[in-house]
Design a protein around this nucleic acid. Structure first.
Lengths: 229, 229
DNA sequence: ACCTGAACACCGTTCAAGT
DNA sequence: ACCTGAACACCGTTCAAGT
């Protein structure tokens, strides 16, 4: 909506100060989060990225929580934009889950918080409308559609948040490709833990992403079956 | 296993120093977490709770992450103990989810981390054995049981973690009974967001706990149906 | 041999002092 | 009128100095 052109800035300043505004701050925050996916974004690092005093942020956001909400709403907007291209209620709900996970994991400093904040922004509302509408299109009655909407979004948000958070706690150590849900149970005592011992190989093969999509499929299958009944 | 009696301590010391050991530190950490459910537990606060120098903790745990893992394994042990009393695979899986959520929400400083850490402790292994075994009892083949185990635990852990985390970020402000997943959408524009505008009342009625249990029921229904096929 | 506590490198946030 | 940066009250963690 806003015109982001800065071409009218006079040439007197050799190093153009970027005319701080909320959108620019959100841009910088996302740049930092994507650049180092193992660290949180501090107000101080944000200041240096902006070429301004760290505390300048406080003239545009009441506190860090307000900044986090703005950043998350921006990410939600990116997700919505990509989801709009998808057609069919089921493909859209499955694709939206996949895309949201991907976007949050690409910006762990903020993605790790997506389950604990309500952005209150326009993009959040648009996402709710899309999800609720698709569960209605599926054929569910109002009451049931609401239930599936809530279950769907709580699963997608909390899973994505946990996945992003695990990148932050892992820090530099830990091979980057490692999945988080499954530990190595190869030496579990067969007497005390017979099932684990027998199936530990199958456990280590599961990938977080597959588990996530399995959960989505189970939920969407369930919605479809219930709608047909 | 360990005998926790300290009755043999000599009476020379007026204020009995509690003979620091890992279990005592975990006890103190859980006491703090349960006492103030809106704040994280710092090493410093742990020190004063123990009546010892804060850095004493580092002689028993390599770093804070190691302490967190020990605390989470203890909580997992508490959950397991209560779950053992339940009979029937379905009642146990449903009850386990309910109890885990309750225990994590009762100790948000640590519960908020339950989705991002693998404890590597004995209680974790016991929980995996229980869940896998119950999905086998349900009648699923190995491959499918593994998938349902992974989906079940990722949902339970990430939901509980997000729920606990929301108590931390809320801090003192915010009425304590408020649910996190649903914002107030009562003034959504009916033209742009028709479904939300029409159903916003139903949305505000949903409780987090009900949404959680709905998700569990959908998952267990799905497992049962697939096992019968 | 064991423990303390000062110190380091970080946080988010405030507000007096500058321009 | 606007912005800076020093300062405050916190973090987790280390390690020299004590006993």
């Amino acid at each position: 909506v806003a015109n982001k052109s800065v071409s009218t800035v006079s040439g007197t300043q050799t190093r153009p100060r970027p005319q701080l505004d909320p959108e620019l701050i959100v841009d910088a925050a996302l740049r930092l989060a994507a650049r180092d996916r193992t660290s949180p974004v501090s107000i101080r690092s944000l200041g240096t990225e902006l070429g301004a005093d760290p505390t300048a942020v406080y003239r545009h956001f009441a506190d860090k929580d307000a900044l986090v909400r703005a950043v998350l709403d921006r990410l939600l907007g990116d997700v919505n934009e990509r989801v709009e291209a998808l057609g069919g209620w089921r493909e859209r709900l499955r694709g939206a889950a996949e895309i949201l996970l991907e976007v949050m994991v690409a910006h762990p400093a903020f993605g790790s918080l997506v389950a604990t904040f309500t952005t209150g922004g326009a993009n959040e509302l648009a996402a709710v409308e899309m999800i609720l509408g698709d569960f209605k299109t599926c054929g569910l009655d109002d009451q049931t559609a609401l239930r599936y909407y809530a279950t769907y979004s709580s699963f997608v948000l909390s899973f994505s948040s946990a996945q992003a958070a695990s990148l932050l706690v892992a820090g530099d150590k830990g091979s980057p490709g490692t999945d988080i849900w499954v530990a190595d149970y190869s030496e579990a005592d067969p007497l005390r833990f017979p099932t684990v011992a027998r199936l530990h190989e199958g456990l280590s093969v599961l990938s977080d992403r597959d588990v996530f999509l399995s959960g989505i499929d189970i939920l969407l299958d369930s919605a479809q079956t219930r709608a047909q009944a």
